[in-house]
Amino acid sequence: MPEVLSQNEVKRMIAAMSNLKHKCIISLLYSAGLRRSELLNLKISDIDSERMQIRIENAKGGKDRYTLLGKNVLEDLRQYYKKWRPQHYLIEGQNGGPYSGKSVVNVVKEAARRAKIQKNVVPHMLRHSFATHLLEDGVNLRQIQLLLGHNSTKTTEVYTHIANTSMKLIRNPLD
Rank of each mutant, 00 (worst) to 15 (best):
G70A: 14
A111N: 01
D48P: 09
K63F: 04
L147G: 13
Q87D: 07
P98N: 03
I54K: 09
E110Q: 14
Y80C: 12
K71P: 11
I54N: 03
I54V: 15
A115E: 05
E92M: 04
N151G: 09
G62V: 00
P98E: 03
V108D: 06
R127P: 05
E75L: 12
N72G: 15
L77M: 13
A112I: 06
H128I: 04
K82T: 02
Q53W: 05
M52D: 01
A131W: 06
N95P: 00
L77R: 13
S49T: 08
G96M: 05
R51G: 00
Q79L: 13
H133I: 07
L68F: 06
L146F: 09
G149N: 06
G138S: 09
E57P: 01
D137I: 00
Q79T: 14
V107S: 07
L69G: 08
D64L: 02
A115W: 08
I54P: 01
R85P: 01
R85T: 07
P86A: 09
G149T: 03
K109C: 00
V139Q: 08
A131D: 06
L146P: 04
R51I: 03
Y66Q: 07
T153M: 15
R65D: 05
R142L: 11
I56T: 05
S152H: 13
G96R: 10
K116S: 11
N58T: 01
A115N: 12
M125W: 09
R55S: 15
L141C: 10
R78G: 00
L147N: 10
D76R: 14
T67L: 05
T67Q: 08
S129R: 00
R127Q: 05
E57F: 14
L68G: 08
F130V: 04
I56E: 02
R142V: 15
G97N: 10
A112Q: 06
A111Q: 04
E136A: 10
N140W: 02
E50Y: 08
I56K: 08
D48S: 14
S49V: 02
E136M: 05
N95F: 13
A131C: 04
S103Q: 10
K63P: 04
G101E: 14
R55G: 06
H133P: 01
L126E: 03
A131L: 09
Q94I: 12
V73A: 12
R51V: 02
T67M: 02
S103G: 09
F130K: 03
E50S: 13
L148D: 09
D48L: 12
S100A: 08
Q94F: 11
K63D: 01
G101K: 13
N151T: 10
K116W: 00
